[in-house]
Each structure stands twice: as structure tokens, then as C-alpha cells.
Design a protein around this nucleic acid. Structure first.
Lengths: 108, 108
DNA sequence: TCCATAATTCCATGATTATCAAAATATGGA
DNA sequence: TCCATATTTTGATAATCATGGAATTATGGA
């Protein structure tokens, strides 16, 4: 992952509401959550939450699709994986102090 | 790691120069690099780099100490580890799609 | 003490981000 | 078509962040 892209992705996580949303969406699993439910859960006005969801979407951390009158948001596991890979591979270049407890399995 | 703290830490990584510095410091290892060398390597004016190094320091991602006329910056492996732990543990709640290839070893 | 080097702080400027009311858009039913 | 619901876009405002020249602080040597 290129540095500028990684920085943009980190920017998407640099806001408490967005970080909380991502956590909830990972917990919710592939079924995701409706936009309205997300805004209500975090007690954030709909337009504000819409702005944050758009940011997460731009960063490739969540995906969305319409279902009737609702829009369903779900975590984008691929995007999350790429970011974790960046931190582990690019930032921790085999240094045991940093990577020690983690092992990358041969076969995913 | 609490969400607000995590968001602040991600904010420190949400800037290309800072992300690049962190990479170089991890590569440089515990010996670290002099502030002047860092600024020169990235072709960034000293005051600007000083600002970025302060941000990384506030976030607990780098440490510094004076050595004669120079100030040496080095990666803070503990801070980096905490952030990776947050992503793996807090965000990936045992979901195999996300955590599959990574294993947390019993004994660190 | 005086000077050169190394780094930071100060400060002004421009750019980006976060917030949310009001308006607009999209969908499904009556 | 008309209405209610669900969400997004618009637009204005305030707050935060990034940049770098000039001034300041810290250190070591002459």
C-alpha cells in the first residue's frame, strides 16, 4: 500500500464516531446495519453520520447498498486487511520487538 | 485502547510525511535518527518536521532524547504494538475473514 | 565570552475538516 | 399522483491542521 493512500485511510479512522461505527459494523458482520440505525445508536444527526459514512466509504473501509428505502452499510474486510498488512509489513519490517507475537500464516 | 485515544493515534498517522518518518524510524531501529537527518531525507523544512515529530511523539509512536547538539528520534515499539492490537483485537473480534491469516501466539 | 550548529517555538496564512439545519432525492405504499 | 419514510446533498460556520520564515533556545568548542 502506497504511503499517501495509507495516510488517507488512517485519516478515515482519525475520528471517534467513525472508529466506533467501524467497530459496530465489524461486530454486525456481513449483514451490516441500516444508516438510520447507525446514526441513532451513536446519537449523531443523520447528515453528520452520512458525512462520516461517506468518509469511511471513500477510504474503502465500508461498503453500502440500497435495500428498499434503507441503505445498508457493512464493513469492508478487504480494506481493513490491507491497512493491517501495511502496519505489520511496511512498518514492522521483521522487527521482533514489534511483530513478535504475530505470525503470518503460510496459507490464508 | 479507548476509542478517543485510538482516534488521536490514527490522526498522527494520517499525514504522508509522518507516516514516512515512522517507517524510516522503524527501519533505523533503536538507534534512531537525528532530527536534522529526518528533515533532510524527506526534504521538509526543519520547523515543519519538528511539528510533525511532535505530533508523533504526542501520539506515543516515537520517543526522543538529546545527544549533544542533536535530538535523536526513535520508533516507540510499545505504542505501535498497542495500535496494532487495537485493530486486531477491537476491530476484528475473532472474525476469520479479517483475522484469518494472523495468529496471536500464546507466549509473547 | 563569543560563535557556529541543531532544534524548537512563535506566529501568520491558507487549507481542510466537522457539524447540522434546511432542502433535495429516492423509494414504496395508498 | 400524493404522502410518509429513509437518506443524502447543500451550504454556512466554527474549529483544527499544515506550512515555513523569523526569532528563540540549547549545546559544545575556540
Amino acid at each position: 500500500m502506497e504511503v499517501n493512500i495509507a495516510a488517507e485511510t488512517f485519516a478515515a479512522l482519525a475520528q471517534p464516531s467513525r472508529l466506533t461505527v467501524l467497530k459496530e459494523l465489524v461486530q454486525a458482520g456481513p449483514a451490516g446495519l441500516r444508516a438510520g440505525v447507525i446514526a441513532e445508536r451513536l446519537s449523531v444527526p443523520a447528515p453528520t453520520m452520512s458525512f462520516h459514512l461517506k468518509e469511511l466509504s471513500r477510504a474503502g473501509l465500508v461498503q453500502s447498498h440500497r435495500e428498499g428505502r434503507s441503505v445498508i452499510y457493512a464493513a469492508d474486510y478487504g480494506g481493513l486487511r490491507e491497512l493491517i498488512d501495511f502496519l505489520l509489513a511496511d512498518c514492522c519490517q521483521g522487527d521482533r520487538r514489534l511483530c513478535g507475537p504475530y505470525v503470518i500464516k503460510e496459507s490464508a
